[in-house]
Nucleic acid binder design. Structure first.
Lengths: 152, 152
DNA sequence: CCATTCGGTTTCAAGTTGAAACCATTGCGG
DNA sequence: CCGCAATGGTTTCAACTTGAAACCGAATGG
């Protein structure tokens, strides 16, 4: 789907996830799947995207093991789309994007939602990056390392 | 750049960040910027993308306040591209994507890098989502809430 | 000065996207 | 059993986007 340039030598571990997801719209499908949507029609209505496009995106997400189809819960002959374990791993990406959105894109007076703990209804904490020893790390206090360079 | 469907009523706070970033390639630019790249040519060489496309992406990132141009460090007449505060906020998105990539996309025997604490050289911890009271939350233990529904 | 690098813009063929039309299967009322 | 609507797609095709290559102008470099 996305052209493979076979060129992102330095850091395939960002580029390949991006390639697997396919494009931005696909992440909205994943988001809706987290919100409990399972049916083609639900996604289509939620996203307002053309059916052929949605169809292609769903196929791509399935091909990359992010979604899978299961027989419909209600016993009808249709199938439903649900997140795999791998797909659920995208939770943190969505949380990070959402917190970034909350910070920089929520105009005053806008209908504004945010993530809360289901049990208490209280907002969740912001994501933080921690060192192995628990120290809070700011952007810039990390780098990439080849694992062969790791101290034992 | 991306068509505005004015339709993602439920959750603009995912859709709008996605729209601001523009497309996948743009996140790779941001990643490179975190890695210290500043010059047009550096990005072009790193990403292997056509110059017109890179030019358009950079312009889009600037328009959305993720990058800004500054006079070149070395005193030359050219300018350089650096992350804004808002752009640095994408750090958590990149960390989340990378950890997902590490988990699901690193084949055995591949050149494999991961994020380490600059000070100690030890790997960073995995991202976690915590409730306000500190409890660790799994995907599915959160929901979206309108802020008017929040208990005081 | 002449050549080369840097930082782009322009051009245009090829590929992608998406709205609408179409199709196939199931569900259901009579 | 027939008709008809809802669901879940696929096909078609015009419009848009993409990107490789050519071009361009301004700064270095020799």
């Amino acid at each position: 789907m996305v052209k493979r340039t076979s060129h992102q030598s330095a850091d395939c571990l960002i580029a390949r996830p991006l390639d697997a997801i396919g494009d931005w719209w696909s992440l909205l499908i994943v988001r809706d799947a987290f919100d409990g949507m399972r049916r083609f029609g639900e996604f289509q209505k939620s996203l307002g995207v053309a059916k052929n496009i949605l169809s292609a995106r769903l196929r791509n997400l399935i091909a990359h093991g992010i979604l899978e189809t299961v027989p419909a819960e209600d016993g009808s002959a249709h199938h439903e789309y649900v997140l795999t374990e791998k797909g659920r791993g995208l939770f943190y990406v969505l949380v990070a994007l959402r917190q970034w959105g909350e910070t920089y894109f929520s105009g005053p007076g806008e209908p504004y939602t945010f993530m809360v703990d289901t049990r208490t209804g209280r907002p969740i904490r912001r994501l933080e990056v921690h060192a192995e020893d628990g120290r809070l790390l700011a952007p810039g206090e990390t780098r990439l390392a080849d694992f062969r360079q790791q101290p034992e």
